[in-house]
Each structure stands twice: as structure tokens, then as C-alpha cells.
């Protein structure tokens, strides 16, 4: 479900080497493949900075999937019908699956899942800030599907063409599932909008709370986006934050009309000359404050992940101890 311009600086990959020590012919081959829009594979030589940028981006993405299970998981036990309960469990399970194959993609770059989890749990690694807002009513589940996953798709479809092969291939599957989630979310909202006044009010309330947060998910304006230029050069990033944001708004406004909800932006209007919707000012101070850890749910989300990990230590230890014993037994039998 994740998106956020995946160039939010964090502390997990500091001291990126500016200059690679590799011979220039390897570097030239790398550059040539990037220029030819080819794929870089795990066994290929790559500049350290490229590797570190990818590890940061893919692990941020994986962490976002895992942390993102929590706000929607919040409604599984209370889903108002068995059908919606099943859909929601399947969806949250999909997000876990995305996390799994993204961690695997990042592992091909030489970083273990344990290292990435340590970075998340210690607060060094970031995850999408959208998950630091609470899910306050059932419609939040539908709105997250429609808007958050909708924004994710905008951001992630271009990543299917990312220059790093394992990431690009993972994104193909992720995008298919996200499209499904988005349609499911929208369909759930359509049903609610045809229901009672209270149901319609829930949907509007959820849209009001999530609209601006979703626009901020595309990341800071291009002028303030520190990693974008290099990411574009390397074929890790394909479309700029502002262009993706605009594309999302243009696609979403007609959907909101069909749904019958009001998007909470008085400045939102069609600009004939630009051929796009104009929109109001995003509250970047609030966005950065949340990214920095001061949003409404940052502490709860992270502490919950840490607790699950710590509480599960004995289970993982048991599995390893048992595997060791089995190996020893097999060796004894063979001897």
C-alpha cells in the first residue's frame, strides 16, 4: 500500500561514498547500461552510492508495508460484515507479502533482513509517514484503499521500470495487487455512500482527514527534493514528485465526483490553460514534523513493531534451535 517519494533522507545509509573505488571500465559499463535503459542485476558491479540509495529506498518501502499493516489491521476485528472482514484480512496479508519480497529484493544488495529491521526498530530507517495517522472510523479502510493505495500506484508503476532488476520485478506484482486494493477500497466506499446518512458522514470524515496527507505522500516539491536528480539519472526514479502528485489529483477528482464526496480543498479547480487541476497549499511543516517522529501515531506504530519483534524472539529462537538439532541428528545418522 505504500507510497511516498522514496527519497526521504534517513540515518540508515549515511556516509554514502561520493566516489567509487572501482576501475573506470566497470563504471563505464554501468553508466552505459543505465543510458541504454537496461537492467542492473545483483551480480553486476554498481557504484556504492547506487547500492546504498537502493537499499535505503527498498527498505523504506518494505518497512512501510509492514508498518502499514497496523492502521488497517486496527479494523479487522471490527469489520462490519464477514465479507469485508475477509477482504481486509486478505489485503493486510498482501501488504505483508509485499514487505517480504521487498526485503528479499533488498537482500540481493547485501543487506540482511535483520539489519534492515534493526534500522527500523532503532528509528534510523524511515517508513511512509501516511501510516503515522490514526484510522478512526471504518471508512478509513476504504479511503486508504482508494487514496493511499491509489497514490501508491502512481508512485510505483514507474518503479516497474526501475533500473535495478529485482526491485522492478517485485514492483510488477506489488502494483497488480495495489490496483486490486484500490478498486476494492473504492467499491466499499460506493456501497457506504449509497447507505445511511451516518455511513456517508463516515466516508466524508475519512476523506477530509486523508486527502492532504495523501498529497504530501508524493514527497516534497521538486525544488526541495534532495535525492531526486541522482535518482532520475540512475533510473531509480522516473517521474518527479510534483508530476506524480498532479497526475494523482487529475485522476482522483472525477472519482470523488462519482463517489459523491467533497475533496477538502477550496482552491481545487480545473485550469483549462494548464490542462490540469490547480490545488491549494500543502502543509509541509506538518508533513516534516510527522516524518521527524512527531505525528499522532509515530510512537505507537514503532513501539508496536518493536514489541512484536521482541515478543517473538523466543519463537524464532525455538525454530533455530530445532533446526540445529535436526541437522545434528541427520549428521549422526549419516555417520
Amino acid at each position: 500500500m505504500y507510497t511516498q517519494a522514496m527519497d526521504i533522507p534517513d540515518d540508515s545509509g549515511k556516509k554514502i561514498a561520493a566516489v567509487s573505488s572501482a576501475p573506470s571500465d566497470q563504471e563505464a559499463a554501468f553508466e552505459a547500461r543505465i543510458d541504454a535503459d537496461g537492467r542492473i542485476e545483483p551480480q553486476d558491479w554498481m557504484p556504492d552510492a547506487y547500492r546504498k540509495t537502493l537499499v535505503r529506498q527498498i527498505s523504506q518501502h518494505a518497512h512501510s508495508e509492514i508498518v502499514g499493516m497496523l492502521p488497517e489491521g486496527n479494523w479487522i476485528s471490527r469489520a462490519p460484515s464477514l465479507k469485508r472482514k475477509a477482504i481486509l484480512i486478505a489485503k493486510v496479508q498482501d501488504e505483508g507479502g509485499h514487505g517480504l519480497y521487498l526485503y528479499s529484493a533488498a537482500e540481493t544488495l547485501g543487506t540482511s533482513r535483520d539489519q534492515m529491521l534493526d534500522a527500523l526498530h532503532s528509528g534510523k530507517a524511515k517508513y511512509s509517514s501516511i501510516f503515522n495517522y490514526p484510522t478512526l472510523n471504518w471508512a478509513d479502510v476504504g479511503v486508504i484503499g482508494w487514496l493511499v493505495d491509489g497514490a501508491a500506484i502512481m508512485n510505483q508503476v514507474p518503479l516497474c521500470r526501475c533500473s535495478y532488476g529485482p526491485y522492478a520485478r517485485a514492483m510488477v506484482r506489488v502494483c497488480k495487487e495495489e490496483s486490486f486494493h484500490q478498486r476494492q477500497g473504492y467499491e466499499a466506499l460506493l456501497v457506504m455512500m449509497k447507505g445511511t446518512d451516518e455511513q456517508r458522514a463516515m466516508v466524508q470524515d475519512a476523506v477530509n482527514r486523508y486527502w492532504w496527507k495523501c498529497l504530501a505522500m508524493f514527497g516534497p516539491p521538486d525544488a526541495d527534493s534532495p535525492h531526486s536528480a541522482q535518482g532520475m539519472r540512475w533510473g531509480i526514479k522516473r517521474i518527479s514528485n510534483d508530476d506524480l502528485r498532479q497526475k494523482f489529483i487529475d485522476a482522483t477528482v472525477p472519482q470523488a465526483k462519482v463517489l459523491g464526496v467533497t475533496l477538502p480543498d477550496p482552491e481545487l479547480k480545473w485550469n483549462e490553460a494548464r490542462g490540469h487541476y490547480d490545488y491549494g497549499q500543502i502543509d509541509w511543516a506538518e508533513f516534516w514534523n510527522t516524518v521527524e517522529g512527531n505525528g499522532p501515531c509515530n510512537k505507537e506504530r514503532l513501539a508496536t513493531r518493536v514489541k512484536a519483534h521482541n515478543d517473538g524472539q523466543w519463537v524464532r529462537d525455538a525454530a533455530q534451535a530445532y533446526a540445529r538439532k535436526q541437522k545434528e541428528r541427520a549428521l549422526k545418522e549419516a555417520a
Binding site: I66, V92, Q93, G96, L100, Y103, T304, V315
Partner: peptide, 20 residues
Amino acid sequence: AEWCGHGPILEEDMALANVS
């Protein structure tokens, strides 16, 4: 389903969600 998001390891989160 109460384990969803709280499992001892990601694979188990998914397994229990599946059982559920």
C-alpha cells in the same frame, strides 16, 4: 486474526492471516 501485524516473524503473520 488478532495476530495480524503482531506475529513473531513476518512469515507467521501471513500464515495466521491465511488460517484466519
